[in-house]
Write a protein that binds this DNA or RNA. Sequence first.
DNA 1: GTCTATATCGCGATAGAC
DNA 2: GTCTATCGCGATATAGAC
Lengths: 227, 227
Amino acid sequence: MPKAALRSNADRGEETRRKILDAAESLFAERGFHGVSLRDITTLAKVENALASYHFKVKDHLISAVVLRRAEEHRFDLVNSLEATILARKPGLPTNLDLVKAYARPALEKIARGPGWAAYIKIIVGIQNLDRNNTVSLLTNSIYDDTIRLFVTAFERANPGVPKRSVQFSLYFLHGAFIHILSQGRTFERLIDDAKGFQDPAELLEELANSFAFGLDGKARARAQRS
Amino acid sequence: MPKAALRSNADRGEETRRKILDAAESLFAERGFHGVSLRDITTLAKVENALASYHFKVKDHLISAVVLRRAEEHRFDLVNSLEATILARKPGLPTNLDLVKAYARPALEKIARGPGWAAYIKIIVGIQNLDRNNTVSLLTNSIYDDTIRLFVTAFERANPGVPKRSVQFSLYFLHGAFIHILSQGRTFERLIDDAKGFQDPAELLEELANSFAFGLDGKARARAQRS
DNA sequence: GTCTATATCGCGATAGAC
DNA sequence: GTCTATCGCGATATAGAC
């Protein structure tokens, strides 16, 4: 008796769900929500077309399920990363270098684990840049907002010599640069005549931390000199 | 006799083309290429459905026309902006502050002119992040690549004390942050409890220049201290 | 839970009168 | 250059047998 036949219906359903989610994740990342049909997804997943509707009812629920599968883990790791960094410097304050790394490391680590995480990031970034009131945008907002605010506050505390608004601008730029990297828009990389890309996570983390921490440190220094 | 009747057929055609292009620009920016139908476009433009096909043949040509309408002007202004900056410092070299401003100012000025330019930027950024081999991506690559390379070279010259690769990383981040700003992803802005947004072009330019120029200056300083 | 078949719709694109 | 009408296709989603 073949192994497959031993599995319960519930197990088979779970595997089908997973296959559909994996295929959807990959395709939505590549071509966007509207650029992918349910047929594309079930074909790649090697399951019947009707099963996408059976398991996820409508297309909107499917992409929500794709996002939910990863979002909570990412949020959890972000919070822990920040808390660990703050704790490590107690009773002092974390530096800008510490904080940039705490912010960026969780996502970079996940992307290094495999293509699924990279696809997930591409999806949420791509969708945020379109309709900001769609299901997925609202979902990710509700998951990440509070966590990002924790980082903003931590950076403000770490830069008492810089006006809050100027700190916020720096973080706005950091955030923009980072999600651009994560969504793997190779627009810039293509332009450099250098065999090596910009994808090595350790190097990326180091350069990101230097660029933005030095930027913030420079703002403090410029202000100190003026007075 | 009403004014409209005096116009030639060619003039009427030109106006129809413009109305379709305007509507398409706005909608593609909002929902992406696949998220918009030709019917959506002609409805917003208040023209007959068949006219989109008559004037642009297929949907692909239409979005290409939307992009081409603005791309050449932007490229031209970018080149001039860089040349003027270099000329102004001769026989010395432009500073990082100069160069960041030269890079960012043309787009910020255009966006301030009206919603059309902002939509154009959103379209090319959004499409680059999906299929990198579609018509529009190839089009914008061929238009912008050489110009961006000019900036890369100028930055490398302005930072002899920093390894080229580290300069390139900084520009990678600058580019990412900037196109994130331009594509108006308000993901970050929404998080700050501050009545004022991050949209004032003059303030944005100043903060952007400070953040990234200080970042590069800091890299040079750190390197000098180490040796 | 899965499969075949199909209903229903909106899409891009075209034909042909004006 | 514009307008009405329509074709052919592929999309989402469902019905009902297994």
